[in-house]
Write a protein that binds this DNA or RNA. Structure first.
Lengths: 144, 144
DNA sequence: AACAAGAATGATAATGATTCTCAAAGATAG
DNA sequence: CTATCTTTGAGAATCATTATCATTCTTGTT
């Protein structure tokens, strides 16, 4: 509950920090983002935001998402197939499992994998700036 | 050396298997693919193929790549930024390190990471169909 | 060698996601 | 209240990719 308000505040702060105005349209988008616990694409966010504020255009959705992404409060994911999908940045870093049948997204985190990645990069003379780990999965058929 | 011929033969076989003809234009593309040890995009492959066979169109490059991908002899990668990049399928599965400064691609493989992925998926009730692991890296500055 | 039937081709149009443009509407400071 | 600067929505532009389609190639059959 208060979670959403907190998230919204963080995003509002990010907009102000970026020196851009917190308008009616952007407020609607922030509310939608704070409320979303899935990983919607821009079109979907636009639909949801229009319920709260009919005057939001898709252009503004994209514009605002870009700002929020730059400020680091929203993450953009380019999963396989279709356009980018977004989520508000939360505490811990995590990677994603994608259900290839339903498109559903599950988050997971593995320090071990993370460490191994660093190690591998180091051995090849690199340091990891960021990474992308996506597991395209299918629900296990129980005792088929 | 003979490696390229081998690769070319594998791809030729794949085209035949798919029931499509091995034309002049496609032969040029196969040669380019067999020769490439980097990860070129469609435009780049088109440029290279035109040297061998000026009549290759970009459309044919895309068409043929799709066939080869379906037959499993070519892999398509959607790295961050820009269009898809391709490589001929070789023996072992591998993942990629991308130099964020140069765009260069380095391949690596880690059974440990692979295992961990399976484990994590299993625990969440999934089985991995395929995955994507990309490390966006920067060359380590030696003793800066 | 001529031929009919089907496949492949190149040029170009179409698509889909995203960004850009720009005139009009809105906010802000004085 | 006004001059200035920002944001807006609508639609044009862009980029990678795919689809369309009339024409050209192949190929197997005489």
């Amino acid at each position: 509950m208060g979670e959403d308000i907190e998230k919204t505040e963080k995003m509002t702060a990010a907009l102000k920090k970026a020196g851009i105005r917190v308008t009616r349209q952007r407020i609607a988008l922030l509310a939608v983002l704070a409320d979303a616990d899935d990983h919607p694409d821009a079109e979907e966010l636009h639909q949801r935001a229009k319920v709260l504020e009919p005057s939001v255009s898709l252009a503004t959705v994209y514009r605002t998402l870009s700002v929020l992404e730059h400020e680091g409060v929203v993450h953009r994911h380019a999963f396989e197939g279709g356009g980018a999908r977004f989520e508000t940045t939360h505490e811990a870093h995590h990677d994603h499992i994608l259900d290839v049948d339903t498109g559903e997204v599950v988050e997971f985190q593995s320090d071990k994998i993370e460490q191994l990645q660093e190690e591998i990069a180091r051995e090849l003379g690199y340091e990891v700036v960021h990474h992308r780990l996506e597991l395209y999965c299918r629900k296990k058929t129980k005792k088929l």
